[in-house]
Simulated assay, not measured.
Amino acid sequence: MSICLVRAALPAAWVLACLGVCMDANAQAAQGTSLPTVTISAKANRDPVEKSYRKMIRGMDLFEREKKSMAPDASLRFKLLPRRRETDMNAIDLEVIGTTIDFPVPIAPDHTFTMPRNPKAYDENAQVIPNRKAQTMTWRSEIRTPGLPPGTRRLGDLRLECRVGMESGLVSRGTSIISAITGAIFDTPAYCDQKAPLYLFFAERPLFSVTLASGERREILPVAMLYAAASDDPKLDRDLPDCDCEVLVDRTYFLPLDDRSWADDTLVEFEYMEGGS
């Protein structure tokens, strides 16, 4: 199977890929009434970019079930990423808040964290809430096998990242009616196994190219699979604010997750923009 996408379909596909997951307004209201009265900033945030603790634990469970076959030596962390240029990613307070329980989650300097398991928080369907407003950040799972060459990732790790991210409900969407409809289609791990799934990955720095390498076989991804396919979107200025990649477009890429001719041990090699940071 070719890893090239049909360019004619990309403008619509890009919108679907970039439309983010917003929580149903009625569900938010119902959850809000059960939160305890507290004073710290994350809990006082009127427009939180919150996630479901229960879903994130389910994502961790999926990782434990599937890592042996896809990423046997890898570890799982979660990562926070900016969605707006003005978003302050320093000193973020992250807390799990249920009806009767709340506890902080430490965040590492690279904006990653592990989620502690707490049966009471799970039973109470707690929320994971940072002290940042909605539409200012996005979330991803980060699965890494140690000992890889610099500037590379392992395809099996990234395949599992997609599955864990979808199971955990991490991809942030905008507030359009289209996003509500597409959410029901995309918010399952099975999406990652569909033909040419448009799951956005983020590199560490602005990208020049991405290459798949497996033994003697090498293939450079087409530009249509970089930059959230924005080069093919004639309505970029309108669509970009609905994408959780808005401020990181130059770091984004898609992968042929469904193409099993590329083994899980395939290396994904990054060539970065000169001077990119």
Rank of each mutant, 00 (worst) to 15 (best):
C4D: 15
L10E: 13
A30Q: 12
V38K: 09
R46F: 05
R46P: 13
S52W: 06
R58N: 10
M60T: 11
D61M: 13
D61K: 14
F63D: 01
F63M: 07
E66S: 12
E66T: 11
K68A: 10
M70W: 07
R77N: 03
T87M: 08
G98S: 07
P109T: 09
F113T: 05
A121L: 11
I129W: 03
N131K: 08
S141E: 00
I143W: 05
I143F: 03
T145E: 03
G147N: 11
R159W: 08
G165M: 02
S172N: 05
S172V: 05
T175G: 02
S176A: 06
I177S: 02
D187S: 04
L198R: 05
L198C: 12
F201T: 00
G215Y: 13
G215R: 14
E219G: 06
L226H: 08
Y227N: 11
Y227K: 13
A229D: 09
D233K: 10
D233Y: 08
P234Y: 04
L240I: 12
P241C: 00
D242R: 09
F254R: 10
S261E: 15
S261Y: 12
W262M: 07
W262K: 13
A263M: 14
D265C: 12
Y272G: 12
G275T: 10
G276P: 15
